[in-house]
């Protein structure tokens, strides 16, 4: 088998319909918009856990802010009758991710946990993935960032500090998933139990609007949440099959 055959065969195997059903885990997050108060604790927790830089005023004005999870605000109506709603937006970890197909160096790919992952040192910074992402949740390092003296001590050693010219995105705190899997292995268990692993945003959410787990386990908290009739996915019509499921906010007036 020559290189070309091997390449096409491998690609077909990777891209056959439903290939993501065969993975070990299917990590899923549900976000209950009825519970979300828009407090931004998840944003801060993510910033601390994943060494996300504070870009500063100038870069922010250019639209170069970095937040792997952000709270989007939507106003409806005019002032006296104005209604405000929030939606936390993070990488949807799509099973059929548009960003993966476009990367020329395969720096972003689907791993065996069904996660859409990014390898920073492989990324060459074409930014094509950010263009393809319909959720606008990929962030590019336009500059090298540094942390002033006491703050560099709080950097998470399990996460790289990304350098200039590298794309980055939410990983579902893959370093915590990795640790949980290692612990499961040490205990002689084959799988991670429900509740063993939580991303930083889920851990921090004061109203427990965010729930994280494996949807392959029918007993997990997240599987029960998925049966809620309020469940929907953002931009479902694009058929990206996101792993983040939102539970619709139901008002008194419908």
């Amino acid at each position: 088998m020559n290189f070309f055959d091997r390449f096409t065969k491998g690609w077909q195997k990777y891209r056959k319909p439903g290939y993501y059903e065969e993975f070990d885990y299917a990590w899923t997050m549900t976000i209950d918009l009825d519970r979300c108060t828009g407090c931004s604790a998840c944003v801060t927790a993510c910033q601390a856990e994943n060494n996300i830089p504070i870009v500063g005023e100038k870069a922010f004005a250019k639209g170069r802010q970095m937040q792997w999870i952000r709270i989007e605000r939507y106003w409806e109506g005019e002032y006296p009758n104005a209604k405000l709603s929030f939606i936390p937006m993070l990488c949807q970890q799509c099973d059929a991710a548009p960003c993966e197909t476009v990367c020329p160096v395969s720096a972003t790919y689907h791993n065996q946990d069904g996660l859409n992952t990014q390898i920073y040192n492989r990324c060459i910074g074409t930014r094509a993935c950010a263009v393809y992402c319909p959720y606008e949740v990929r962030y590019f390092n336009y500059n090298d960032h540094h942390w002033d003296a006491p703050l560099d001590q709080q950097l998470n050693p399990d996460v790289t500090v990304r350098e200039k010219g590298v794309m980055e995105k939410c990983t579902f705190c893959i370093q915590r998933i990795r640790t949980a899997k290692d612990e499961a292995k040490d205990d002689g268990r084959r799988r991670v139990r429900d509740g063993d692993v939580q991303p930083a945003c889920v851990q921090t959410c004061p109203t427990e609007a965010l729930v994280f787990g494996d949807r392959k386990d029918p007993q997990s908290k997240v599987s029960k949440k998925l049966k809620d009739p309020r469940a929907y996915r953002v931009l479902e019509e694009l058929n990206t099959l996101p792993s983040v499921v939102y539970l619709k906010k139901v008002d008194a007036d419908g």
Binding site: Y109, N111, I119
Partner: peptide, 11 residues
Amino acid sequence: ENGLDCWTCHK
């Protein structure tokens, strides 16, 4: 197990 996955060794 999963020894060839990028995120096993990269971070």
